[in-house]
Design a protein around this nucleic acid. Structure first.
Length: 221
DNA sequence: GGCCAGGACACCA
DNA sequence: TGGTGTCATGGC
């Protein structure tokens, strides 16, 4: 099975996912940082705290004390690190782009990626999530779910690093932000729900016993 | 009480 | 370039 076939199969089963779960580009950026190695459920609590405190803005986060940000985002875990990452990102946008994400996103995509990666606390996945889901530019996101799915199927066993796996998906798919967006969201949906057994249910999917709804995972694995 | 979750970074060899 | 320790909460 190639990536495009997998995407079609997932889409046929789950339909459109309408991602990213956020109300603005800035909220996508905040969520992308807060979700680092963290369950989304906990990210939602942290974002809700920021909203309630009227702190979900670039200007507010750039000017607030680390301790205050950390207290609000505590439910997302790693709150000291993430408070620092959030504040640095916002200060960077305020200083270099007058607080406008649209100015930042007007950079050519590779330049944008390079700038994001230069910021402390923003690595490959976070940068690519911001580029795809906030800026709307074609950058395929590799996360734990994508890696897991690739290992299980496998799609490309040789693609072991982030860059190689990303290059594999991007070379196999039409260069479309909408497609990258939908595909990644479908992968997350599938990996979250396909198997209710944790962790990873490697034994059960190898036996073909792992099913979710109408979907027999024998077709995938 | 233990394991896990939509990573990133410092440090080391 | 790759391996390891660290950061930390909340759900199950």
């Amino acid at each position: 099975m190639n990536p495009l076939q997998l995407c079609k199969k997932l889409y046929a089963n789950y339909k459109s996912q309408s991602w990213w779960p956020a109300n603005s580009g800035f909220e996508v950026c905040v969520g992308a940082i807060l979700t680092q190695n963290t369950a989304w459920n906990n990210v939602e609590k942290a974002v809700a705290n920021l909203k309630k405190a009227k702190m979900l803005s670039c200007e507010k986060l750039a000017d607030s004390k680390l301790e205050k940000i950390a207290r609000l985002i505590k439910p997302s875990g790693y709150y000291n690190q993430k408070a620092k990452s959030l504040k640095l990102f916002c200060q960077y946008v305020q200083k270099n782009y007058k607080g406008s994400l649209q100015r930042l996103f007007s950079l050519p995509v590779l330049a944008l990626r390079k700038e994001l990666l230069s910021l402390h606390g923003i690595g490959n996945e976070t940068a690519d999530s911001i580029i795809l889901y906030a800026a709307g530019k074609p950058m395929f996101v590799i996360d734990a779910y994508t890696k897991r799915l690739n290992e299980r199927l496998p799609l490309n066993p040789k693609a072991e690093t982030y860059a190689r796996l990303q290059a594999f998906f991007q070379s196999a798919l039409p260069k479309s932000p909408r497609l990258y967006n939908e595909f990644h969201a479908l992968v997350v949906r599938h990996c979250k729900e396909a198997c209710r057994k944790k962790p990873l249910c490697r034994k059960c999917f190898l036996k073909g016993e792992c099913e979710f709804g109408k979907i027999s995972l024998k077709a995938f694995y």
